[in-house]
Design a protein around this nucleic acid. Structure first.
Lengths: 211, 211, 211, 211
DNA sequence: GATGAATGAGCTTTCATTCAT
DNA sequence: GATGAATGAAAGCTCATTCAT
């Protein structure tokens, strides 16, 4: 007879897995997948190397679990619904803020993804197919609904939407990862508002003629 | 009396180093730094493993050399001078095109940087300090010169400039690296023109009211 | 006051040991001693790994117990008595048949012995001393009783008896283990009768002159 | 430019491989394949673990090389030719003597084969197909040529030939491996002569009626 | 200068054994 | 008695680095 109820044991098991996954994610973000021995993950989680293998079949299996567990864009649909009722300009500003926050909340995963995507392109394809591409489509559809077909004919809204994401990620990376703010201090408020402003009106703004 | 003049010997030495650096860059882009044994680099360069160590103290030293050697934004100054005489809108379009081309020409370095920068933040700092930050400043200065102080007060031109770079890099990565074009085919022409258009006029374009 | 009488407890203890020994024997025959984790034995016996160690001090101790427990020639004395009343030729044929059957009935033990005896020569010594050697003596004595002292002077009956066992084991191994019958199909009936025939009369049979 | 001529280097390489193979064979015979770490083989050969892998891709590859390198019945054809010109009875005695000597000369390989055959039945199939089965056929053919078709109809010569091998191997194993001679001292001369005698004339010898 | 054989630290993974529950 | 989570020694293998030639 087990001393602990099965459900309790399962809960403990899941807790341990989660713990290991979290620890691994943070170490991987810092030192890379290949650069982080299983022993380091185990030690950081306060267990022995052998114990690690009670919870994951292999280091690779843990990576897959981590990628499955934490996806970078989980709530884009929810976000989309929230934005539907808000005026366009405000919606864009909200989106930039939310996306920025999301990246910050998933700092380690972003770093891991950046680092490992090139070497796991096949696995990345799935994330691409199920997250990136539909997300990009959603944004483009939203933009078309707001901007009308005329503007959609002039520019590619797929490109525009992805460009917006690109600006946000660039700031995340330069800010969080490279610490660019040490050299070029920019107010965090300025970042989101300028990104939104440029995305909406361009650098030219409400049509002042450039020199 | 040396058989070969010192300068000649040095030239040979440099040639070898360059050769090894180039080979390493291309292998690292494909298989990662950790995933590429020194033997593979030596073999691809047509020398023995032992010879490798005549030219670089260690694998790590070669990485540092490669990161120092090839910078992602080397000719921004030249570009800036070229753009100075061109009307603003055209200059932006040219810049986008040039930057895109530059990334394509340095595909391997982009991949390597993506992978390895996170674990070499200290070394990245140097690149940041000497390339990224001055480049960003140059662009911001250029934008201010063209847009005037009024617009510079409304938005952060540092942010705007960096956002432009972010859009370009995002497309490069999604296009070249992830193969996103398989799922969302976009004309390469559309990409640069849309990026430039959005950057200049925003998605709203010349002031059509959004819904 | 114990809930269970000591004898009952002991019986249970022995049952468990036997169960584990049987399971282990069958797994070891298939996958080898080193190739079979304790966990596999425990699982196959329907107990936990921890429980295994309540019944055996170590995996090695179980091996020793199994080798002690199951001997390959246990009933040679019984067999000898049965054969005493039967005419010689028939007795030999019966013996071959019985020995063949015995090996088949203890297939797993034969496989285990083949594999593990070489590395457990010390333990094998015991089996040798208590089973093999007395068995060989019994057979030799039986042969001498039947063949008379004259023939016993011409040939070593120890050698002859052991040779008979050798033939039988050879066929068992080539037949059952190596599947040699796929390449050289031989009737099972032919095997025992030819072995007996050769043992009795030699290949020359009742004195035909060879070329 | 290499300091050593290619041929010399190759010779050295082969010497090392042979050295490792021999050392491995002897350790495996003693402690089994699974029971012998690569480090033990390397150490016994006086090199480091890493060096081992310069000469063999894996431990498994070494096993395959050893099995390929040393076959148990290499000279059966030669032996057959030698025996062709000799009277039958003498030929049988010679064969037994030669086979006994061959086994003794390849003691380690016999032990390895005995031990590992059960766990490498697939690989054993090859040896079976190319050595054991043709060897058995050769012997049977030889026996038929000498004994004539009449005797070949009475007994299976395949079985008889294999039985002879079985007797020889039995003695080899009991003698060399188990040290049975300590308990039942038998003259080595007696062994081969009795085996041959029994094989030729049976225990009954030249037809004395048994009791 | 050039080589590549040699090394050994370090990696991932397995598994016999222990022990708190 | 029974359990199975935890451990850590040890295995197979890789690879950065050294050094005699």
């Amino acid at each position: 007879m087990p001393k602990i109820a099965a459900s309790e044991r399962d809960a403990f098991y899941e807790t341990r897995r989660t713990e290991l996954a979290e620890v691994a994610l943070s170490l991987w973000a810092e030192r890379g997948f290949d650069g982080t021995p299983v022993s380091a993950i185990a030690e950081a989680a306060g267990v022995s190397k052998g114990t690690f293998y009670l919870y994951f079949d292999s280091k690779q299996a843990l990576l897959e679990d981590v990628l499955r567990r934490y996806t970078l864009l989980p709530n884009i649909q929810v976000l989309g619904e929230n934005l539907a009722t808000v005026p366009f300009e405000e919606a864009v500003r909200m989106f930039v803020g939310e996306a920025w926050k999301h990246l910050s909340d998933h700092r380690d995963l972003v770093l891991l993804a950046l680092r490992e995507l090139p070497s796991h392109v096949e696995q990345a394809q799935q994330a691409l197919e199920h997250v990136f591409v539909p997300g990009n489509r959603l944004i483009a559809a939203y933009l078309e609904a707001r901007l009308g077909p005329k503007r959609a004919n002039e520019i590619s809204l797929i490109v525009a939407g992805r460009g917006l994401i690109g600006m946000i990620i660039m700031f995340f990376v330069s800010h969080e990862l490279l610490g660019a703010s040490r050299y070029l201090p920019v107010d965090e408020e300025d970042i989101t508002s300028t990104i939104a402003d440029v995305f909406l009106h361009g650098v030219l703004g409400s049509s002042e003629a450039p020199k």
